[in-house]
């Protein structure tokens, strides 16, 4: 009987736990995670179509260079 009573509480606990935002050890250590990722930075930089509209082409196209 006791087990049957515990089941709903256990289910609620599991749902809450699984919905909790995951934080890495690094983020917790530094305390800098709280700034939301739903920022204009992410919204823009994950949107290739938008980036193609706003990103400006470079004068030089790259290529290999260097000393070695």
């Amino acid at each position: 009987m006791k087990k049957l009573v515990l089941i709903p509480f256990l289910a609620i606990f599991m749902v809450l736990f699984s919905c909790q935002e995951k934080k890495t050890d690094i983020a917790q250590k530094e305390g800098i995670y709280e700034a939301t990722q739903q920022s204009s930075c992410v919204a823009c930089h994950t949107n290739k179509g938008l980036l193609e509209q706003v990103a400006e082409p470079l004068e030089n196209g790259g290529g290999e260079a260097g000393e070695g």
Partner: peptide, 10 residues
Amino acid sequence: SVHGQLACIS
């Protein structure tokens, strides 16, 4: 990823 967990501004 691990680094992606940090806010961009950090």
